[in-house]
Measured scan of single mutants.
Amino acid sequence: QTVQFNGLEYHFPNPEEAEKFAKKVAKELGGEVRVKDGRWQID
C-alpha cells in the first residue's frame, strides 16, 4: 500500500498502516486524504 504526499511515496505492508499514517499526516498538515488509483494521496 502506498501513501503519496509532497512528491514522496511511503510504502506500507498493509492497508491499515497506510490508512493510519495518511490520516495522521493529513491531520498534521491540515490536508485532505483521498484514494486515487489504489494509493492514498494527501493534498
Rank of each mutant, 00 (worst) to 15 (best):
Q1Y: 15
Q1D: 10
Q1N: 14
Q1A: 13
Q1T: 14
Q1M: 12
Q1S: 14
Q1F: 15
Q1E: 08
T2N: 04
T2Q: 05
T2R: 06
T2F: 09
T2I: 15
T2G: 02
T2C: 13
T2H: 05
T2S: 09
T2P: 01
V3I: 04
V3Y: 02
V3N: 00
V3F: 06
V3S: 00
V3L: 05
V3G: 01
Q4D: 08
Q4T: 13
Q4P: 02
Q4N: 10
Q4G: 06
Q4V: 15
F5W: 12
F5Q: 01
F5G: 01
F5L: 11
F5T: 03
F5K: 01
F5V: 14
N6Y: 07
N6G: 09
N6T: 02
N6M: 12
N6S: 07
N6Q: 09
N6I: 04
N6K: 08
G7P: 00
L8K: 14
L8I: 13
L8W: 12
L8A: 10
L8S: 08
L8E: 10
L8C: 15
L8G: 06
L8N: 11
E9T: 14
E9S: 10
E9R: 07
E9V: 14
Y10C: 13
Y10N: 00
Y10R: 03
Y10I: 09
Y10L: 08
Y10P: 00
Y10S: 01
Y10Q: 02
H11P: 04
H11G: 03
H11E: 07
H11T: 09
H11A: 06
F12V: 00
F12I: 01
F12S: 00
F12M: 02
F12A: 01
F12L: 03
F12P: 00
F12K: 00
F12Q: 00
P13D: 13
P13F: 08
P13G: 09
P13W: 08
P13E: 12
P13T: 13
P13V: 09
N14W: 04
N14F: 05
N14K: 03
N14C: 08
P15G: 08
P15F: 11
P15D: 07
P15C: 13
P15W: 12
E16N: 07
E16G: 08
E16W: 12
E16L: 10
E16A: 11
E16Y: 11
E16F: 11
E16K: 08
E17Q: 08
E17F: 05
E17Y: 04
E17T: 08
E17A: 11
E17L: 10
E17K: 05
A18V: 01
A18D: 00
A18L: 02
A18Y: 02
A18E: 00
A18R: 01
A18F: 02
A18H: 00
A18N: 00
E19W: 09
E19F: 08
E19A: 07
E19T: 03
E19D: 04
E19I: 06
E19K: 06
E19V: 05
E19M: 08
K20C: 14
K20S: 10
K20Q: 12
K20P: 01
K20M: 11
F21W: 13
F21I: 02
F21H: 02
A22R: 03
A22I: 05
A22H: 01
A22M: 04
K23R: 14
K23P: 00
K23Y: 14
K23F: 12
K23N: 12
K23M: 12
K23Q: 11
K24P: 01
K24T: 09
K24D: 09
K24Y: 09
K24C: 15
V25G: 01
V25Q: 06
V25D: 01
V25M: 12
V25Y: 06
V25S: 03
A26Y: 04
A26C: 13
A26I: 07
A26H: 05
A26K: 03
K27A: 13
K27E: 12
K27N: 10
K27G: 08
K27P: 02
K27D: 10
K27I: 10
E28K: 09
E28W: 12
E28H: 08
E28V: 08
E28R: 07
E28Q: 09
L29T: 14
L29W: 12
L29D: 05
L29M: 10
L29Q: 07
L29Y: 13
G30Q: 06
G30W: 04
G30P: 03
G30D: 06
G30N: 09
G30V: 03
G30I: 03
G30R: 06
G30K: 07
G31I: 12
G31N: 03
G31E: 06
G31Q: 08
G31F: 13
G31A: 13
G31M: 14
G31S: 08
G31R: 07
E32D: 08
E32C: 15
E32F: 13
E32I: 14
V33E: 03
V33R: 00
V33K: 01
V33N: 03
V33M: 06
V33T: 06
V33Y: 08
R34K: 13
R34P: 03
R34H: 14
R34Q: 10
R34A: 10
R34E: 07
R34M: 11
V35C: 14
V35Y: 15
V35H: 12
V35T: 05
V35K: 07
V35R: 06
K36E: 14
K36C: 14
K36R: 09
K36M: 10
K36D: 08
K36V: 15
K36W: 06
K36T: 12
K36H: 12
D37G: 06
D37C: 10
D37I: 00
D37P: 02
D37A: 04
D37N: 10
D37F: 03
D37Q: 04
D37Y: 01
G38Q: 03
G38E: 03
G38C: 09
G38N: 08
G38S: 04
G38D: 06
G38T: 03
R39G: 07
R39E: 07
R39P: 03
R39I: 15
W40S: 01
W40Y: 07
W40N: 02
W40A: 01
W40H: 03
Q41N: 07
Q41G: 05
Q41L: 13
Q41V: 15
I42R: 00
I42V: 11
D43V: 15
D43G: 08
D43I: 15
